[in-house]
């Protein structure tokens, strides 16, 4: 099993989370930022049992077949959700004429899937190494947008209240960061097993802060036109103009595409490793099969997967199963004593 360091792990996971934020649709307010922060905190709490198990050296790849199969299914569904988000957002992100219309969107999704097959077949290590560079590029884009937002902010936009309430925003935030199968698998691949709980905790806090920052930036830039904005974060990036004669559409397009590839690759690599454990005889085309399944799930169930409660349920499934397993094991140990 390839080993990755803590920075690579955090970069890999945050890239996927930021891609989901790029594809965030619907109205966002300051309360949404709070909800996303609290959603990250909730995910940390439910992942603690899994992180305790990892600290003791028990990784997902050493778990029983049932858990591995469940993680595989969840990774495929997560990948399907990512393809569905890519499909719906690609119309808004200005891709040149090749990306317009149904055939264009199919071409874009197909190219991304092909690149993912290539990258995921190289293993976790190759993916993780390049993730730091991609994360740095994304950080540059994000910093530019944040600086622009602070220079041109519409403070009144922060006062707009969320009609649906804080609970719906927490649910939205919880479902948005749902790549927990990949998280648990990747965390098990980090070098120092003793620091996995700390690394996981750092990741969740970083994600909460980053999500809140990105959403608040979108609110500050698009606040006045939020009711006509379908994808506020993407629109905020497109409206940023750090210099009078320079927009960052092109940089955002590159970051969007790169992050889409990484987000899907993380799920593909997860599925590849789990398939290797579940069906050792399947030596070739594991990544291809996983990606094909993700595309199919995205095509047929994409709309359902984008519902906040569905995404939240899928996100919570594996950590809850791991927590239940931990409880039963402790009971067995205590009853045998």
């Amino acid at each position: 099993m390839n080993r990755i360091n803590n920075s690579q792990f955090i970069a890999l996971m945050l890239i996927g989370d930021v891609f989901v934020l790029f594809c965030l649709s619907g109205t966002v307010t300051a309360m949404t930022a709070t909800g996303f922060g609290l959603g990250s905190l909730l995910q940390l709490i439910i992942c603690l049992p899994a992180m305790f198990s990892l600290k003791k050296g028990s990784t997902l790849l050493e778990s029983g077949k049932f858990l591995q199969a469940a993680a595989l299914v969840l990774a495929v569904f997560r990948g399907g959700l990512l393809f569905s988000l890519l499909w719906s957002t690609s119309e808004t992100v200005y891709i040149p004429y090749e990306g317009s219309g149904v055939s264009g969107k199919l071409l874009v999704a197909g190219l991304i899937a092909a690149v993912c097959v290539y990258i995921s077949s190289s293993g976790i290590k190759a993916l993780a190494r390049s993730a730091l560079i991609a994360a740095a590029l994304g950080g540059l884009c994000l910093a530019t947008v944040v600086i622009f937002a602070l220079a041109h902010m519409d403070r009144e936009a922060l006062e707009v209240t969320e009609r649906q309430g804080i609970f719906s925003q927490i649910l939205r935030g919880f479902g948005a960061g749902g790549s927990l199968s990949s998280l648990i698998l990747m965390l098990g691949c980090t070098e120092n097993s003793g620091s996995r709980r700390k690394t996981g905790t750092v990741y969740f806090f970083a994600r909460g802060i980053l999500s809140a920052a990105v959403i608040l930036t979108a609110v500050l830039i698009c606040g006045g036109i939020m009711e006509i904005t379908e994808f506020p974060v993407a629109m905020a990036a497109q409206l940023s103009q750090p210099f009078p004669v320079q927009r960052i559409d092109a940089l955002f397009l590159i970051v969007f595409s790169v992050f889409a590839v990484y987000a899907v690759c993380v799920e593909a690599v997860t599925a590849d490793n789990l398939l290797n454990q579940l069906i050792p005889k399947l030596k070739k085309y594991r990544s291809t099969a996983a990606l094909a399944a993700m595309c199919g799930v995205g095509f047929f169930f994409g709309k359902a997967l984008r519902q906040p409660w569905v995404a939240a349920a899928l996100a919570a499934a594996l950590p809850v199963m791991l927590a239940v397993r931990l409880i039963f094991r402790r009971r067995e140990v205590s009853s045998s004593e």
């Binding site: 040149p96 190219l111 092909a114 690149v115 097959v117 290539y118 077949s121 085309y285």
Partner: peptide, 23 residues
């Protein structure tokens, strides 16, 4: 398999808008 995939991806560079359509 990787070589075949690289051969398939290579023509994708033609879709980067560097054709005369973007002149």
């Amino acid at each position: 398999m990787k070589k075949m995939l690289m051969l398939l991806l290579f023509p994708a560079v033609l879709l980067t808008g560097c054709s005369s359509r973007g002149n």
